[in-house]
């Protein structure tokens, strides 16, 4: 059986169920790299130039972790998934860059996804990818349709049940149907609601963000993430802030930021990677919005490999203290 490796980094969090279904339908086995560790991150950082952003460094580490474990690596070059909205250069150059910096990696399956070239090109690209596994075009078609269904189901699951990608992926991988758990009778209601905005590969990589979600939940805060909003909510918030998206993954920052600053959260935390081109602009837009609205406190955390756990913890504590004070004061005013 052919083994296809998928690094647990970057777009894994968005598209894993889709990719997994596609390759499994074609009779391949899918191997995923283990969650990020310091060793993975360090091995990745040692291969690329220092200015490269943190998530790409982590990605290279995951590729190295998969070397020798699989026959092919799947690294798509996603240029555009919506008309006239393009992706960051690093995603476009990812297959070629990986090949250049990790010569020991298995052969790379790359595919150009660019919706602006028309559907025909897209289908041809998918077909070309599938041909590596089967001669039968109908089987590729079936696999692609099943993959798309899996993706829709995944998205639906996250927005319907307020799950984050990690929980949703776990739910999908468990083959036995699990009853939706009834919320336990929580004696202490959450202290407040904190919205995290940013790309999934930063929010859900616990090593990179120093277990931010875990920290918030442990302190009894309800955590909201961009995936919990519907596509319409994200789109309309993006339109209000910047008129329309320019980057492929703009909505999870600008859209989610705009939405949560206006309603639904007591505080918003923006998470970005140092050296991230698109984020440096998008976070600034959200920041300016927060400063203008003056309704919801906003903090942005910039992550890189030198970010110390203590630093993150301190800033988080200070931010949460401030939110507590605000809530108390508001309550006093109401009385």
């Amino acid at each position: 059986m052919i083994k296809v490796g998928i690094p647990r980094a970057l777009l894994y969090y968005q598209y894993y169920p889709m990719w997994k279904t596609f390759f499994e339908e074609l009779g391949a086995e899918v191997v995923v790299s283990p969650p990020t560790t310091q060793a993975i991150l360090s091995s990745g950082s040692s291969r690329v130039v220092a200015e490269t952003c943190l998530p790409v460094k982590a990605f290279c580490g995951h590729v190295l972790a998969l070397a020798g474990e699989c026959d092919y690596l799947f690294i798509p070059a996603i240029r555009s998934v919506k008309s006239r909205i393009y992706n960051c250069s690093k995603f476009l150059g990812l297959p070629d860059m990986t090949k250049a910096v990790t010569p020991e990696s298995p052969p790379i399956l790359d595919i150009d996804i660019d919706i602006n070239q028309g559907k025909r090109e897209l289908y041809q690209a998918i077909y070309k990818l599938g041909r590596r596994f089967t001669w039968n075009p109908l089987k590729v078609r079936q696999a692609a349709i099943a993959a798309w269904q899996a993706h829709l189901k995944y998205m639906q699951l996250m927005s319907d049940q307020d799950l984050n990608p990690l929980q949703a992926i776990e739910r999908i991988s468990n083959t036995t149907e699990v009853e939706p758990e009834t919320p336990p009778d929580n004696p202490t209601p959450p202290q407040a609601t904190i919205a995290l905005i940013g790309h999934p590969y930063l929010l859900y990589d616990e090593h990179i963000n120093h277990r931010l979600i875990h920290r918030l939940e442990k302190a009894h805060y309800k955590v909201l993430t961009p995936e919990m909003l519907t596509a319409e909510e994200l789109e309309s918030a993006t339109a209000r802030l910047v008129g329309g998206a320019y980057w492929t993954y703009e909505e999870e920052v600008v859209g989610a930021g705009g939405h949560y600053l206006e309603s639904g959260a007591d505080g918003v935390i923006g998470i970005m990677a140092f050296g991230c081109g698109p984020d440096s602009l998008m976070m600034d837009i959200v920041h300016r919005r927060a400063a203008r609205l003056r309704t919801t406190p906003f903090m942005s955390l910039t992550l890189e490999e030198h970010t110390a756990e203590a630093g993150v913890a301190t800033r988080l504590e200070a931010f949460l203290d401030m939110i507590q004070r605000r809530k108390r004061r508001q309550a006093e005013v109401c009385v």
């Binding site: 130039v49 200015e51 960051c88 250069s89 860059m97 910096v101």
Partner: peptide
């Protein structure tokens, strides 16, 4: 961004 990819 593009030049970092090129540099790599």
């Amino acid at each position: 961004m593009p030049e970092i990819v090129a540099q790599n």
